[in-house]
Design a protein around this nucleic acid. Structure first.
Lengths: 358, 358
DNA sequence: GGCATTGAAGTTAGCGCTAACATAGGTAGG
DNA sequence: CCTACCTATGTTAGCGCTAACTTCAATGCC
C-alpha cells in the first residue's frame, strides 16, 4: 500500500528529525497543564511559582519519570563550567574518594571535571597552556599542589578560580576547604594520653605541606596542656611516605625508653610504624599503640586496622567544586570563601591502654 | 546622548541574549571561508571533505583556539550516553586509576559517567530502579561485580549495555576488557623459578572472583612446565584482603620446609606476606621473595616495594567506556566485543635469587 | 473607581551544534 | 552533448532548555 497523505496533517517538508526517547519539559508541561517555562522554574527551584502549581508540576514529573537533559540545560544557560582537577601524584590514596565527591557535585551543578596532571619537570607556563587549551574556568588543588605558591600564582594571573583542599594555610590565596588539622591532631594526642600513655611519640609529615605544621602543633599543644614537657627524642621527621615512616619509627623505637604510643601524621607512616614494631617483636596494640591520620585505604588494608583521623575527603572535594561553580557563575574573583568541615576520630584496632610498667 | 537607531540595522526586538565568550563553529567557518557544516565535518573526522578544505579548517581552528562545545554537540546529536560505574567497594585501591580512564574517554566521547554503589543488602531490583531513574544507558562492572551473575542478568533484562572489566570469564555475558590473568600468573611464577626458587608458595584469591582461578592455574601450569610437582602445602587460600594474606602467609611460613618465595594473588596479600615474614625474622628479599599482582598503590606504599604484575587499569576502563559508547550508538545489543590488553611484570625490590641452602 | 504595583504565568528566541536534506560542479558513459 | 551519478559543500531546522521579556490578574492606595 502506498503512503497516504492524510489531509489536515501538514508536514513542513519531512519529519526529518531523529526520534528522541526521553521525556522533555514539553511533555511534563502538557501533562501538568502549564507552560514549559513553569516546569523549568520548578525543576530549578526558582521562586515565583504558586505552591499549588508547583505540586501539579512535581506530580507530572514523578508520573512521567522526567529527568532534565543536562546538555540542553547547560547550553541554554551558557553554563558548563569546566573545572580541572590538578594533581601531582596519580597514585595518591585519597584520589578515588576525591574524584567521587567531584563527580557528584559536577553532576548536580552542570560542571565538567577534567583531570590534569602536573609534575615538577613541567613549568607552570606549560601547564597554563594546557589549561587554556582545554577551556578551563576553575582549578581544584588537592595536596601537595595546594601549597605550591608558584602554581597558585600562575593560575591566578590567568584569572582562574582556584580552590585549595586540605591546605594548612587556607587564607593564603583562592578558596579553600579544610579540616582543622591542629584540632584533629590535638584530639588524637589527647585520646592517647587519656589511654594512659605518657611517652607519646610523633612522626611529623613533609614540611613542605602546610598541614604538617598544624598537625605537629596539635600534638605539641596537647602534650603541653597535659603538663608534659616536649621531648625531642619523641619526635621524628617523616615525609608522608611508607619508607620514611619505617625509618622514623625505627629511630623512635630503638632507645630503651621508647614511647608506648606513636602518632604518625598519616596512615602510610602509621602502617610503616606497625611494621617496624612487629619487626622489633612488639605487638600492636598490646606493647605499642599506633595511630594515623587521613583514613585512607591503607588504614584498613593493614592489620590491626588503624585508629586514625578521618577526613571527609569526598565531602571536601564536593564542597570545593560547589565553591568553584558558584564563583565562576558569580564572575567575581575577589570574594573568597573558606569552608572548614568536621573531622572524625575513627577508633579501630591499633590503639589501646598504655602497657603497665615493664 | 540618546541611542541612535542606525537605519538598515534591524533588531527583531532587542539583542536579548547573554554574551557568550567562546569561539563557535560560526567563527571558525567565517575565518576559513567555509560553512559551519564543513567545520563540523572536519572536527568529527567525517569523510567527504576535500583535503585542501580540511587543511584550511584545521588552520582556522588552530588560529582561533576553537574547542567544540560538548553540550551543544550532544544536544544536537541526541547523544549523551550515560554510563554508570557500578562498584561494590568504595575504597578499592584500583578505583582512582579506574576513574581516570573513564573520565578521559567520557570527555572524548560525549558520555557522562555516574558513580553508583551497589552492596549486598540492596536487591538487584532496587538497583535497577536507581539506574532507570538516572537514565543510564550502559554499565561498567569492575571486580567483584563483574562476576555477579544476578546483577548481570538483571542489567541485561533491562536492556542495558554491560562491560565487565578484569573478569576471569570474559565470554559469559556482555562486553569485556581483560588481561590474560593466567599468562600473567604464569609469567610471574616462571620469573621466580628463573631466580632459582624451587619451593614457590602461592596465596590464592577469593574463589568467587573468576580471575582468581586463572591466576591459580597460571601458577600451577608454570610449576608443571618446570617439572615440579604441585604440593598442597605450598598453596594457601586467601580472599584478597590484607588480613587473609597475613593468615595464609603464616600458614605457609610456619613449617620447617617453608617456601623461599611466595606469589600472592594480589598486592594487599603480598604486603601482608612481607609483614608476616618480618614478624618471623625473615628478611625480604634475602630470606624470602614476595611478589604480588595488580600494582595498586599498596605495591609502592610498603617496603621493600613489591614486584608485581601491572594491570593497565586506566587503559582498561577507558577501553570499556569506549566499547559501551560504541555499543549504545550502534543500538545493537547482540554484537559483543572482548578486548584483552597487555600486562606487565614490574620488578621492584621484593624479589631476589633463591637463598643458597640454609 | 482609576491607576500604579505586585506576583504568577506565558511567549519568544536562541544557546552551539549537527542530521537530513538540497545543490553545485564535475565525471563518465552512451 | 546530454543524462546519470557521484562528490564536495551549503542550507535549514531543530535537539531541550532557559534568559529576558510580556501579559494578565489580583491586589493596594488615594
Amino acid at each position: 500500500m502506498a503512503t497516504v497523505n492524510v489531509p489536515g496533517i501538514v508536514r513542513p517538508k519531512q519529519p526529518r528529525r531523529r526520534v528522541s526517547a526521553g521525556v522533555t519539559v514539553a511533555d511534563v508541561a502538557r501533562h501538568a497543564g502549564v507552560s514549559a517555562m513553569t516546569v523549568s522554574r520548578v525543576t530549578n527551584g526558582e521562586p515565583g511559582v504558586a505552591p499549588a502549581t508547583r505540586e501539579k508540576v512535581d506530580a507530572a514529573i514523578a508520573a512521567l519519570g522526567y529527568v532534565p537533559n543536562a546538555a540542553a540545560r547547560s547550553l541554554a544557560g551558557a553554563r558548563q563550567t569546566r573545572i580541572a582537577l590538578l594533581h601531582a601524584n596519580p597514585s595518591a590514596a585519597y584520589l578515588s574518594e576525591f574524584l567521587m565527591g567531584c563527580l557528584a557535585q559536577a553532576t548536580l551543578g552542570d560542571a565538567m571535571v577534567v583531570v590534569e596532571q602536573h609534575d615538577p619537570p613541567e613549568t607552570p607556563q606549560a601547564l597554563m597552556g594546557r589549561l587554556r587549551k582545554h577551556r578551563i574556568d576553575a582549578v581544584l588543588l588537592p595536596p601537595p599542589l595546594c601549597d605550591d605558591t608558584a602554581v597558585i600564582a600562575a593560575l591566578q594571573r590567568e584569572g582562574l578560580a582556584v580552590a585549595r583542599i586540605a591546605t594548612g594555610a587556607p587564607d593564603m590565596a583562592g578558596h579553600s576547604v579544610t579540616i582543622d588539622d591542629r584540632a584533629a591532631a590535638h584530639a588524637m594526642t589527647a585520646h592517647l594520653l587519656a589511654l594512659g600513655h605518657v611517652r607519646v611519640g610523633f612522626i611529623a609529615g613533609n614540611p613542605n605541606q602546610t598541614a604538617s605544621g598544624l598537625r605537629s602543633r596539635g600534638y605539641a599543644d596537647a602534650l603541653a596542656e597535659a603538663g608534659l614537657e616536649s621531648d625531642r627524642s619523641l619526635i621524628a621527621q617523616g615525609d608522608f611516605t611508607y619508607r620514611s615512616g619505617l625509618l622514623a619509627a625505627e629511630r623512635l623505637l630503638s632507645p630503651p625508653d621508647r614511647p608506648t604510643a606513636i602518632f604518625a601524621s598519616n596512615d602510610d607512616m602509621a602502617a610503616a610504624t606497625v611494621a617496624a614494631a612487629h619487626r622489633l617483636g612488639l605487638e600492636v596494640p598490646c606493647d605499642l599503640s599506633v595511630t594515623g591520620f587521613d583514613d585512607t585505604a591503607m588504614a584498613t588494608a593493614t592489620w590491626p586496622e588503624l585508629t586514625t583521623i578521618r577526613q571527609p575527603i569526598a565531602a571536601m572535594s564536593q564542597a570545593a567544586v560547589r565553591l568553584l561553580i558558584e564563583a565562576v557563575r558569580r564572575g567575581d574573583t575577589s570574594e573568597l570563601r573558606h569552608e572548614r568541615l568536621d573531622y572524625q576520630l575513627v577508633r579501630r584496632g591499633s590503639d589501646g591502654p598504655a602497657p603497665t610498667l615493664r
